[in-house]
Amino acid sequence: KAKLLVLLYAFVATDADTICIGYHANNSTDTVDTILEKNVAVTHSVNLLEDSHNGKLCKLKGIAPLQLGKCNITGWLLGNPECDSLLPARSWSYIVETPNSENGACYPGDLIDYEELREQLSSVSSLERFEIFPKESSWPNHTFNGVTVSCSHRGKSSFYRNLLWLTKKGDSYPKLTNSYVNNKGKEVLVLWGVHHPSSSDEQQSLYSNGNAYVSVASSNYNRRFTPEIAARPKVRDQHGRMNYYWTLLEPGDTIIFEATGNLIAPWYAFALSRGFESGIITSNASMHECNTKCQTPQGAINSNLPFQNIHPVTIGECPKYVRSTKLRMVTGLRNIPSIQYRGLFGAIAGFIEGGWTGMIDGWYGYHHQNEQGSGYAADQKSTQNAINGITNKVNSVIEKMNTQFTAVGKEFNNLEKRMENLNKKVDDGFLDIWTYNAELLVLLENERTLDFHDLNVKNLYEKVKSQLKNNAKEIGNGCFEFYHKCDNECMESVRNGTYDYPKYSEESKLNR
């Protein structure tokens, strides 16, 4: 008799109507990190870190770059004969040098303040090359056809396309004075040089004057150069050297050249137009028929994500570079809930034993079982409120962090190594801060989002509990077992918050 009662009780308990509160689960393989956990499985997430590029040089917003090819900045601007293909260059979106560009200054020497000139050019998007001192009329008392084997072109001695090597005419090199007034309405880049012979005999042979000088002056520039005559090792078949100089001439300003020898005179100059998204990159990537809004030396990035880990040097509207390998923000729920887990921000989770793959029309909802059958029903209101809140948060985070910009490298010469090392340390410090901030932001927001979901499920549970009161009992896994019969209409009233407690209280009292 006792065995019969136990079996009867078990049958009745199993047959009781139930309603459970749960949440969506799926077959997603997404994982995120939080402050407290690593690799948390979630139903949905968004990636904030771009880690792919196309490996190509592309047009930037429809404008092609200027590819210097086998030449570098120095060779292009001075007019190395091997860089003749660059003479027609007028406009570009950015400038590309190759790491091993070999054609710079063909006659050995240095372009002074080269690093600063590169910085200036990094904001130039177009130029006009014009004859600042016409070759045939500007130097009537001097020979202007100086050439050298060091600047050979097609097997013949030649010289820079933008400079003139002035030497004596006959047996004399009379003092020369020439000036140019900038009437271009924009900055003009003027380049010139000073020749330093290897011996007094060479000085006399070329310029006749043993104590020659070169003077260059404008409103913002004033220097006097004296040739340094000295024996030097042979470089590119030359014992002599040429140093090259430049200045930016403001609109309306005048530049005056005065010399008694050794002047490498300007022939062509450049009127410059600035462009905020221009820059110089060093890259071996090849040019393709493609378009982008962000270019790196590795390749083009076409992404609206706020961060990238491809390269710190970028041109155009680019994500911020960070050292992170993963920045994924959760938008959905835990896919593998932890039992009795309390989140960092106070939300209680884990009283549900598992997510439901059968509930596909919402994030949170119900599963019921009664004599009429069983089924899932999503709670659309709480789901939609959660979707709206999380979507707004993700968009806000992306908008705040998605300050796209150009980031170019800084140039230092060989004598500025300590400054370069200090600059690298400062840049590394800023990069570490950006990386830390980005990672911390994602970790915190992921923790908040998961706790937010847990709290929403808990609130749904409490909503049902407050309606049923003692007409049902909690069975410990997020479910309630009714003390009365609850048909589909009754189940719907529980879900929509209109459950009639008094209607079922007498039946429940008897069954309790």
Rank of each mutant, 00 (worst) to 15 (best):
A16P: 04
V32K: 14
L111Y: 00
L272Q: 01
G104Y: 10
D30R: 02
S215T: 12
R236T: 03
N141C: 09
P65E: 05
K61Y: 13
G193Y: 01
A25F: 02
E116Y: 02
S172F: 13
D51V: 12
S273N: 11
I229Q: 11
A259T: 09
V12C: 09
L121A: 05
W267S: 08
L191F: 12
I281M: 15
K135W: 08
D15F: 04
K56F: 15
N178I: 09
V194G: 06
K61F: 05
L60M: 12
T29P: 09
A230W: 14
A2H: 05
L249N: 00
F257Y: 13
Q203M: 09
L191K: 00
G146L: 06
Y107I: 11
V96W: 06
A217D: 03
D237L: 05
Q120Y: 11
Y9E: 00
F257S: 00
S123T: 07
L176N: 01
N39C: 06
C83D: 06
T148R: 02
Y9S: 14
W246G: 05
E202G: 03
D253C: 06
I229M: 12
Q204K: 02
K61A: 10
D51P: 03
I63F: 08
F11E: 01
N100L: 14
N162W: 07
S85Q: 13
Y207G: 03
L117C: 04
L263G: 01
N183T: 14
D110Y: 11
E202P: 00
R232S: 02
Y180A: 03
N222D: 12
T254H: 15
K59F: 11
K175E: 07
D110K: 10
V216Y: 07
A10P: 08
I73F: 14
L191A: 08
L4D: 09
L7H: 04
L191H: 03
L77P: 04
A41R: 13
E131D: 13
N47T: 14
A64C: 01
V188W: 03
H239V: 07
T43K: 13
F159N: 05
G193C: 05
E82Y: 13
E228P: 03
N222C: 09
E115H: 05
G155E: 14
P99E: 13
V214K: 04
W76L: 07
A13V: 05
D15K: 15
S125W: 04
C20N: 05
G79I: 01
H44M: 13
V124M: 12
L111D: 02
P140A: 09
N162A: 01
S137T: 06
T14G: 02
L191M: 14
A89P: 09
W139C: 06
S123V: 09
S152Q: 14
D17A: 09
N162E: 05
S219H: 12
G109Q: 05
K168A: 13
A269Y: 00
L248I: 15
V216D: 08
H44C: 05
T31P: 05
K175F: 13
H153N: 00
L164G: 11
L117A: 06
H196Y: 13
S150C: 09
Q204Y: 10
N80F: 00
Y107G: 07
T226Y: 13
I132Q: 03
L249I: 14
W139D: 01
G252I: 00
L189T: 04
L191R: 03
E258D: 13
S152E: 13
G170M: 12
C20R: 04
D110T: 13
D113V: 00
D15Y: 09
E119M: 11
E116F: 04
A217W: 15
T29N: 15
T29F: 02
A231G: 08
P266L: 11
E128T: 13
T282E: 07
G62E: 08
K156E: 15
G22P: 12
A13G: 05
S45W: 15
V46M: 12
K3H: 11
N27K: 09
S91L: 11
R118H: 14
R224N: 03
D110R: 09
S215D: 10
N103V: 09
R223E: 12
K184Y: 03
R90C: 04
G22M: 05
V6T: 11
C106W: 12
E250R: 14
N103W: 10
P227T: 11
D30M: 00
E187T: 12
N145T: 08
N162I: 01
S28T: 15
F11S: 15
A105S: 12
Q120L: 09
G69L: 13
D201S: 11
P233K: 13
L163D: 02
S52N: 11
S205A: 12
E50S: 03
Y94S: 08
L166P: 05
A16G: 14
T74W: 00
I112T: 14
T31E: 15
D253L: 00
Q204V: 13
S52T: 08
V6A: 10
E250Y: 11
W267K: 07
T177M: 06
Y173S: 02
N27V: 02
L127S: 11
L263Q: 02
A13E: 14
S157G: 00
S219R: 15
I255P: 00
V40E: 07
D17M: 08
L121T: 05
L248H: 00
Y94D: 07
Y268S: 03
F257T: 04
S179E: 14
I255N: 03
T14K: 03
Q204P: 00
A16Y: 02
A16I: 11
S150L: 15
Y173A: 01
V124C: 11
I281W: 01
V46L: 13
N209C: 00
E131C: 09
S45Y: 01
K1F: 15
L263E: 03
Y9N: 06
G261N: 01
L121H: 06
L263H: 01
S52A: 15
F225E: 04
A212H: 14
F159Q: 02
T14I: 15
V214C: 07
A105K: 00
G79Q: 09
L86C: 08
T31H: 07
W267N: 14
Y244L: 04
G279R: 07
N145M: 08
I264D: 11
E115N: 01
Y173L: 03
S198E: 14
I19C: 00
S85P: 09
L48H: 08
P65C: 09
R223H: 15
V149R: 02
L249Y: 00
C151T: 07
S273M: 12
A231M: 14
D201G: 07
G79F: 04
D17I: 02
W92C: 15
T177P: 00
E82W: 03
K168C: 10
E128I: 07
Q67D: 14
P266Q: 07
W192C: 01
S52Y: 07
S179N: 14
V216L: 08
H239E: 12
L66T: 11
A105W: 00
E37C: 02
V214P: 01
Y94Q: 10
F225Y: 13
K70D: 01
P108S: 06
G170W: 02
P134V: 07
T98H: 11
C58S: 02
D171E: 15
R118W: 12
G275F: 07
S138Q: 14
S198V: 08
L189D: 05
T34L: 04
N182V: 03
N54L: 02
N54R: 04
R274C: 06
S125I: 15
L249A: 03
K135N: 03
A265H: 10
G62C: 05
K186P: 00
Q204H: 00
G146I: 13
V32E: 01
G69E: 12
L78D: 04
A10L: 15
E228N: 06
V46D: 01
L263C: 05
H142W: 08
V216Q: 06
K59S: 14
Y180D: 08
K175C: 03
V216S: 02
K61W: 05
W139E: 04
L206Q: 04
G146H: 12
N141G: 09
L121D: 04
P134L: 02
N220S: 12
S218Q: 12
K184R: 13
G79M: 07
L7D: 02
S101R: 04
P233V: 15
C106S: 06
G275R: 12
W92T: 02
H196A: 14
L57T: 04
C20Q: 06
K59Y: 14
W267Q: 05
I95G: 02
R118G: 02
N54H: 04
G279H: 07
D17N: 12
D33E: 13
I19Q: 13
A16W: 11
N182R: 02
S215L: 10
R236E: 01
Y213G: 01
E187R: 07
Q120V: 06
K135C: 08
V190C: 11
P81V: 03
I280Q: 02
A231S: 10
F130Y: 15
Y268I: 08
L189K: 02
G79N: 06
Y213D: 03
L111Q: 01
D253V: 00
